[in-house]
Design a binder for these strands. Structure first.
Lengths: 110, 110
DNA sequence: TAATGCACTTACTTAAAAGTAAGGGGATGA
DNA sequence: TCATCCCCTTACTTTTAAGTAAGTGCATTA
């Protein structure tokens, strides 16, 4: 059965659209991070939302979760090869968003 | 006072992120549209949400609302010059989203 | 033995987005 | 005059996303 496919722009918005997802990815672009490193880097995120967003991103194939079987075990999150394909998209989005923020700033200052 | 500016990727997600906004813009890229034309083109949108999203897009400067003082008056929505700067961004987003949909389809078919 | 760190999960509550249904004010048309 | 079209608005309900707080299991350290 071929089910109705959503609009591709909405697909992307869905993938990036959680409150903390852009922030999480921003940090993972820089380097791999552990759960509690992300907690510290994003002070306002709750453990629940961090775990949920990481699971979402993992399910979409954007983020890899690696359990290092050391003692104690450590869990590392990283941007997958596929996830890296988001970087140029994010750059274009970012450039537009920056300009839009400036524009709004100017108009509110006038 | 310089208030905290949000992450530019979030800014863009906020601008495009309403349930019907990508669809509305898609139709306005093609040509100017009147309120009830949009209603017909997007059968599942409610009048309330259509009006609200159009107001949001207008407030952000993406969409122009023109009242033609004919009898009866007609109201036309169009993509503003500024709104057109979203087109290349949407294309990049769209390309990624299409690929992602294909990827998910393949994985669910396997 | 007690306290702390890590990587979470669960249950419950609140807030934000969207849906539903009705109405309104000004036309035109039959 | 009554119905209909256009472009919405308002009030209320439902759904979805996010926040809060507590707890779990295993391990190390003091």
């Amino acid at each position: 059965m071929i089910h109705q496919r959503e609009c591709p722009v909405e697909t992307l918005i869905h993938v990036l659209g959680g409150k903390w997802k852009p922030m999480i990815l921003w940090h993972l672009i820089e380097s791999n991070k552990r759960f509690n490193e992300l907690e510290k880097l994003i002070p306002d995120v709750s453990q629940k939302m961090l775990a949920q967003h990481l699971r979402d991103l993992e399910r979409e194939g954007i983020v890899d979760r690696t359990i290092h079987p050391t003692i104690p075990p450590k869990v590392e999150y990283s941007l997958s090869e596929y996830g890296k394909t988001l970087i140029p998209v994010a750059e274009v989005m970012c450039a537009w968003g920056e300009n839009h923020n400036k524009r709004k700033y100017k108009e509110s200052a006038s």
